Simulated assay, not measured.
Amino acid sequence: MTPPEGTIASPNHYERLLLSALDELGTCPQIAVSRQEATVESEAEGPDGITPAELAAEAMEAAQLLPELADITVDPRITEEAPRLRRIAAHWRGTDAAPDLTGEFRVPQFHRAIFDPAPPLAWEGSTPDERELLAQFRQIDGHPHSGTGQVALVRLMPHTAPLEIWMWDDRLGAQRMDLDYLGYLEALAVTKGTHGWQYLFTGLSLRGVDLRHTADQMRAMLDHFPELFPQHDYTRLRERLEERL
């Protein structure tokens, strides 16, 4: 695996999780990684690097100057533990031994993400309520190279903690996920961004025609991953897939 740009002297739990996920993909013979990236925030590099809490404090001080962010409350756990990675990303597929597996993720640093504008998800048929909801979203993960039309989002609601995590699918719209932000990172590290994994954490059934391919991807992931990445526990994912089939 290509080493990350910059080094964190004492990576925290979530930094280790994401960097390990990248390493696991890059060193697995049954996985072909076409793109990968891991960039450390410059202020966090080296033994005297800024802590996650210090990075968050700087960001939130600036946020108070913006009307749309002034009343946003960030969960203290995110403040203390959000990865100090400016961006971490991978685009991959299974080789001949696992040809039915594909995946991608592209995760920006959390406090950078909330400063970005809302992604352009509304269309001419969106209702006023839908537009209001979509305007509160900021992208925390996506598939720029796969072009799946799926992104993961944090919802910025004033005086609300923990912040809600949603996913967007161009075919089915916005779906709330049964995860907080750090839980999202935990699940991402296990699934490696296998296309469609987020649906395991929504209330939707995977029995319908629209999500049949997603169900097949989840079956393939849970067939192959215990052998490819045996260091992880897939019990929770299996249970969630069974509940949706």
Score class of each variant (00 low, 15 high):
Glu41Gln: 12
Asp48Ala: 04
Gln30Leu: 00
Pro67Asn: 11
Glu15Leu: 12
Ala113Thr: 02
Ala62Leu: 11
Ile50Met: 13
Leu19Cys: 09
Leu17His: 13
Glu61Trp: 04
Gln64Trp: 11
Gln30Asn: 11
Phe105Cys: 04
Glu61Leu: 09
Ala113Pro: 01
Arg77Phe: 06
Glu54Ile: 05
Pro76Ala: 11
Thr73Pro: 00
Gln36Lys: 02
Asp23Ile: 01
Glu54Cys: 06
Ala97Gly: 03
Leu18His: 07
Pro108Ala: 09
Leu19Asp: 03
Pro99Gln: 15
Tyr14Met: 13
His13Tyr: 14
Ala38Ser: 11
Thr73Ile: 10
Arg77Leu: 14
Cys28Glu: 13
Ala98Arg: 00
Leu19Tyr: 08
Leu18Gly: 07
Gly46Pro: 02
Ser42Gln: 10
Ala62Ile: 00
Thr79His: 02
Leu101Tyr: 04
Ala113Gln: 04
Phe110Ile: 03
Ser34Val: 02
Arg35Cys: 01
Ser42Ile: 04
Gln36Arg: 05
Cys28His: 00
Asn12Thr: 10
Thr95Pro: 00
Leu18Ser: 09
Arg86Gly: 10
Asp23Asn: 08
Glu80His: 04
Asp23Gly: 07
Val33Thr: 14
Ile31Ser: 06
Glu15Pro: 13
Leu17Pro: 05
Asp96Arg: 13
Arg112Trp: 06
Gly103Tyr: 04
Pro11Tyr: 10
Glu81His: 13
Thr73His: 02
Leu55Gly: 08
Glu81Gly: 00
Glu37Met: 09
Leu65Ile: 00
Pro83His: 06
Glu80Thr: 01
Ala89Thr: 03
Phe105Tyr: 12
Ala89Phe: 10
Ala21Asp: 13
Ala21Tyr: 12
Leu66Lys: 07
Ala59Gln: 04
Asp75Lys: 08
Arg106Asp: 15
Ala38Arg: 01
Pro76Met: 12
Pro47Thr: 11
